[in-house]
Design a protein around this nucleic acid. Structure first.
Length: 354
DNA sequence: TCTGGGGTCCTAGGACCC
DNA sequence: TCTGGGGTCCTAGGACCC
């Protein structure tokens, strides 16, 4: 029988840091920003010991340091995590019969035909541990959505199975926000329709949902409430659609000339990233956060044939739209890229892989 | 509490064309 | 001046994920 496994490394970033600093084992460890709690930055990952103090991902580093004064705070070292991630994914691909779809640094779907998915999952955990000294949790499902949600019930270091057989019993009374792809905003709009639980979403009339969310998303949310339908793990290599760089400045920028310089510097990095992929630019985006928290985005199409000088010229047109009299806290530049020939049929895995 | 950085996809509305 | 229906492209904004 075909199964979808969802593999998720436990406290991945913190675990990688502890591996190379064994003296940190058992201590509260927080990884975020440049490791300086005095700066504007947030927590990337906290170890379980740090989580016991109420520290969690996305929390401002300053607050985290206040909650867990004893914690060791480390800077983010992306290349190290990327390397560890590659080892993990290679081990997943080495499992017998495994089709692997990577979702991020620390998680992947594994499609496999087996009669005992739990035994397969346990062997997979052992293999990953033996190769990387990292622990993971595994969700087993008959759909991608169920496997993904199952993992949360298996943490840490566990295995949990979620299928059509126990979906209602396990998830029916959960709030819709516990579903993968339903956040606080959609949750609120659903509540306004009288839908609070997963079971209520699963049974909601389609026309009410499509009226609120459109034909595509409306039906998708209902399917989500039912546990999803796709069970296809797609190992087609991921093709990035674009690149972006974003910086929050430690002190707000007020001088327009300085703002322009900062934006052009980000653009330079983004264009280097695009060039590294050997692709062209078909769109530009400029994101501005005026202090304190108002964010605006400007976008522009770019002819596929534009060279770097032309792209920079178009970018200047966007930069010129930044309000000259407002302090800027964050700038972000995004480039949308041409798709390579073999990816233009829309078959590459995206969110549509569901 | 005071909010990072890198991504993806969806929708609405206006411009423009036939 | 009033005016249908359908299509595509562009821009802005929203939402979500890790």
């Amino acid at each position: 029988m075909h199964w979808v496994l969802h593999v998720d490394l436990d406290q991945f970033i913190a675990a990688v840091e502890v591996l190379r600093r064994p003296e940190l084992a058992g201590l509260p460890v927080i990884v975020g920003g440049r490791g300086d709690p005095g700066e504007r930055a947030v927590v990337s990952t906290a170890s379980y010991e740090a989580r016991a103090f109420g520290v969690g991902s996305g929390m401002p580093l300053r607050i985290a340091a206040r909650k867990a004064p004893e914690a060791v705070i480390l800077p983010v070292d992306a290349p190290a995590y990327l390397e560890a991630s590659a080892e993990v994914m290679a081990e997943l691909r080495a499992q017998p019969g495994a089709v692997v779809q990577v979702l991020g640094w620390d998680e992947a779907f594994v499609g496999v035909d087996t009669d005992s998915p739990e035994a397969y999952a346990r062997r997979l955990q052992q293999a990953v541990l033996a190769r990387t000294r990292l622990h993971c949790s595994v969700g087993i499902g008959d759909t991608l959505v169920r496997a993904k949600i199952a993992t949360g019930f298996g943490k840490p270091r566990g295995v949990f199975r979620l299928t059509a057989a126990n979906w209602d019993a396990v998830m029916g009374e959960h709030a819709v926000v516990d579903l993968w792809g339903v956040g606080p905003k959609v949750s609120k709009r659903l509540l306004a329709l009288g839908i609070r639980t997963v079971a209520e979403l699963a049974a909601a009339p389609a026309d009410a949902l499509t009226a609120e969310f459109g034909p595509r998303m409306g039906l998708w949310y209902r399917e989500l409430g039912q546990g999803g339908s796709s069970a296809v793990v797609d190992d087609t290599p991921w093709v990035p659609r674009g690149h972006s760089r974003e910086t929050t400045y430690q002190t707000d920028l007020a001088d327009p000339a300085e703002i322009e310089r900062a934006a052009l510097a980000l653009l330079d990095q983004v264009l280097d990233d695009v060039a590294e992929d050997g692709r062209g630019v078909i769109g530009l985006g400029l994101k501005v956060r005026y202090a304190p928290f108002t964010t605006k985005t400007f976008t522009k199409r770019i002819p596929e044939t534009a060279d770097r000088a032309v792209i920079v010229e178009r970018a200047r047109e966007l930069i010129a739209r930044i309000a000259p009299d407002r302090a800027v806290r964050l700038l972000g530049v995004r480039a949308e890229m041409t798709l390579p020939e073999d990816a233009r049929d829309g078959r590459t895995p995206t969110r549509g892989a569901w």
